[in-house]
Design a protein around this nucleic acid. Structure first.
Length: 115
DNA sequence: AAACTGACTAATA
DNA sequence: CTATTAGCCAGTT
């Protein structure tokens, strides 16, 4: 059998580029999905960025918490059960890095948005 | 292969 | 502010 030539991951390299871009986000900064996709050379693949993070294996050093949506808010994931937990965790991590959330739980991208 | 889904975004109303 | 529509594209079913 071919040595896993199939390698479904058609976007494996893209995912790699996405993660590499996210790793470039400095501490205390946040970036939007669209921005990551753009910097990764994948304009319009904002959703793909979310996929990459969702499928992100545990133990990765990728600061997934610095990736938020264009509204400056932490994105939720379908399962409300765990979403609250993870969202709170993400927010906590960002706040420890110096990112400030307003009363509505949103970040001022003008100040903390990664250039 | 068609239909569904989704950690998205932007424009409009 | 929320709701709706449309664009976007890959993974799943």
């Amino acid at each position: 059998m071919p040595p896993c030539s199939s390698a479904s991951r058609s976007s494996a390299s893209d995912v790699r580029r996405i993660l590499a871009t996210i790793e470039r986000i400095p501490e205390g900064r946040v970036a939007t999905y669209g921005q990551i996709a753009l910097l990764a050379g994948l304009r319009g693949h904002a959703r793909q960025v979310g996929y990459a993070l969702r499928n992100l294996p545990e133990g990765s050093r990728v600061p997934w918490q610095r990736v938020i949506n264009a509204k400056g808010e932490v994105s939720g994931r379908g399962e409300a059960n765990l979403s609250g937990y993870w969202e709170g965790f993400q927010r906590h991590l960002l706040e420890e890095e110096g990112v400030v959330f307003d009363a509505r739980g949103r970040v001022d991208l003008d100040r903390f948005g990664w250039d």
